[in-house]
Nucleic acid binder design. Sequence first.
DNA 1: CTAGTTGCAAAGAGTTTGCATGGCG
DNA 2: CGCCATGCAAACTCTTTGCAACTAG
Lengths: 134, 134
Amino acid sequence: MSKYQTRQRKELLAYLSAHADEALTARHIARELGNSEISLSAVYRNLNELEKEGLLRRVAAQGAGREACYQYAADEHCREALHLACRKCGRSFHMDGETADALIARVAERDGFQLDRTETVLYGVCGNCREVPR
Amino acid sequence: MSKYQTRQRKELLAYLSAHADEALTARHIARELGNSEISLSAVYRNLNELEKEGLLRRVAAQGAGREACYQYAADEHCREALHLACRKCGRSFHMDGETADALIARVAERDGFQLDRTETVLYGVCGNCREVPR
DNA sequence: CTAGTTGCAAAGAGTTTGCATGGCG
DNA sequence: CGCCATGCAAACTCTTTGCAACTAG
């Protein structure tokens, strides 16, 4: 729980909410905030706190590197939605709500498996990236 | 592509195929094969090769640690299936084929998103672990 | 015998932590 | 002013790599 409202924290949150559809690495964020002079450790510390508070979702690395990716999950709606992550552009999307509900119900019924909405990220290629292969 | 059939390689493969339903870390494997005296680096090297050959799937860490988990994916059927990973027991299961096909079709239609079967792992709690909460 | 493999130790990459300094309230 | 947060560097963890010794074919 944030007690103080430091310059670094403010700019970090501003950046995150402005890029809520992207999965970002700690280093990426620190670099983008270069002007703001924020240390990598401060980024990590704040990211960890935000994750505990549930404002952020930590998703596994996608590409070659093993860095963890963090993504803003501000509202209830976003926390409830199943996420689709594009392996080409890194953006992520919310799966259509009805599709998600149907999927969860069907998996529970046919496989006896209870999906966790917040942990699950489905990978693939988004519409934009498919239309413009290169 | 493995050219030689070393003792370590044989025992590693034997262990993997005997635990095809679990997602294992390199360290876990090395420890379990303790009697066989296999070095951690040999485990990593073989795991990487097997992954390139497509016999293994590398999934992101699930628990607290950041270790990558590897899972045997011997047959075509397993490579094509969507995987459900239980966050309690670590086992993984194949989603019912019809459900998977329907999901992929529906996501493509409603969200314009093309799911990648091999990259996607859905997290949740399996039937066994739900019945026995503790 | 020859080339692929292993084991060890050292190097890398990503993340966390200790501690002194600095800044919010 | 007091306490939380930052920055730096060192510590840690996981993974990869260089190299000499070993071994399958």
